[in-house]
Design a binder for these strands. Sequence first.
DNA 1: CAATAATAGTAGTGTAACGAAACTATTTTT
DNA 2: AAAAATAGTTTCGTTACACTACTATTATTG
Lengths: 217, 217
Amino acid sequence: MVWKRYYFTMSKAAEMSARSVAELVIQLGRIAHGCGYAEGLTPAQWSALRYLSRANRFSRTVSAFAEFHATTRGTASQTVKGLVARGYLSRTRSRHDGRSARLEVTDDARAILPHDPCEALVRAAGALPESGRGRLATGLERLLGHLVQGRGERPFGVCTSCAHLEVERCGPEGSPRFGCGFFGELLEETELGQICINFQPGKDSAMKRDFSGKLAP
Amino acid sequence: MVWKRYYFTMSKAAEMSARSVAELVIQLGRIAHGCGYAEGLTPAQWSALRYLSRANRFSRTVSAFAEFHATTRGTASQTVKGLVARGYLSRTRSRHDGRSARLEVTDDARAILPHDPCEALVRAAGALPESGRGRLATGLERLLGHLVQGRGERPFGVCTSCAHLEVERCGPEGSPRFGCGFFGELLEETELGQICINFQPGKDSAMKRDFSGKLAP
DNA sequence: CAATAATAGTAGTGTAACGAAACTATTTTT
DNA sequence: AAAAATAGTTTCGTTACACTACTATTATTG
């Protein structure tokens, strides 16, 4: 295991810098969480709106959000209930599974999403120099990966870096078609950048991730 | 102002990566906060113990912790009260200021600090490759700086990167002595790495920061 | 030097976020 | 056909936290 090697041989300096990273993440997280009461919504509700506006059609359910938000289904149900009551989410029962319901972000919700109080964090990140920002994202992603792995949970991710993604090219010059090997369904190109509950870290992913949303072979 | 320049000219790709950074910080923050109930202490109490064990003597007060924790003095007072009741903190009234009381972390508290649930985050950070870890810390520090600045607050920091630090060398080979220009008091060498409530970002700091805790001229 | 303002800290109250457990209603497994 | 698993909801109790009002001390100001 990789982290053991690093952990047990960590020097004093390495431990200090690791602690610095942890402290900074905690501090940032608290501030980001605290500034979450705009538009009469709670932090949990904003989190739900953010998640559901970024999740693909397999992942827009109460249970998926509960797992993403690291909370219980009961709590997630309450959070969603409030948003439905305000007209920010709509429910449609699944035809294939009578227990399940799909959640959709309404136009009203999309209208207020730019007022998400966490946009302050996005702006702060945007103020960083371009090169450092990419490295920061990569570093945080790895950090989250280690943390989630240590808790025995699954990470969330998008199709473009998922092992379940399948690409099919019709002819040498034909435009590619995409599918998910897990759900066994075709994927629109716009769906490739959405968050999926069944993300599998792509050791052998079909394509490399790219922040622009475009695909690199 | 720097961020304006970056913000208004942000490309689509830059905005995506900024959003990634923000989302990752939020996610990490939630997980780090959620795993905070070990040893019968609440997340807020763990946060207080962490802060007070890292803060210098000018900063170990209820008000300083309230500001650090971005909460009210009332809430901070409650948090501290619980820790005093459990014997993890001791109060000593200030002789210079009858209103103020100094908080000290007890030996009992130092004994349980290694069981801080947020140590999982430290371990995860320790699992990162050494080079990336340093850059990650720097990037997060800048991010926090931008965010705090945008909220009109002051950042917290340590003497070694503070503008108030004064260094005095007794002779060409003599060991240096340190003082704080703000509080007008001498500083022990062990205090130079502690968090201070009156940190002033050191444009012209007397020394460069170093994670090892050692000093570089 | 008095009057006022500011600061450090505490106490009490109300809200609401959240976890836990119990409960339906479907689907899957055996 | 019976049992187990899953999606989701509801209820209840705890508690973290903000808000307000309050005391005690120090700083400021005319």
